[in-house]
Amino acid sequence: MTGKRVLVIDDEDDIREVAQASLEIMAGLDVIVACSSQEGLKKAEAEQPDAILLDVMLPDMDGLTVFKHLQANPATRHIPVILLTAKVQMSDQRRFAELGVKAMIAKPFKPAKLAHQLLEVLGWNS
């Protein structure tokens, strides 16, 4: 076990559950979940996770706005954010990278790959 904790913010129940299971089973991470951007912002501040896996398309607020809120809050600014998105394009990737997004992971994802990518991006591989 890494002892690290990841917050998964996604409005789709099933995606949340499989992402949680993937990270717990394949990477040995602790996972907390939020099903809306508001809940995500609150939990990020209160629970202080080591990383956030954030869906780009949330019904109440798009992922980028959530990210900007996280950046604007001194209590959450330091938490690395990885975006989960249905389509990853180089141009988007660069734009998000410039804003400070740590990485983008494409949906659909394979559990092992999701876990591997997350660990690698956050430098938790060792």
Partner: peptide
């Protein structure tokens, strides 16, 4: 979105079972 999101759940849950 509408097609890939359910596919994502399907793919991940089946792959997890297969582990």
């Amino acid at each position: 979105h509408e097609l890939r999101t359910p596919l994502a759940s399907l793919q991940a849950s089946i792959d997890l079972l297969l582990t």
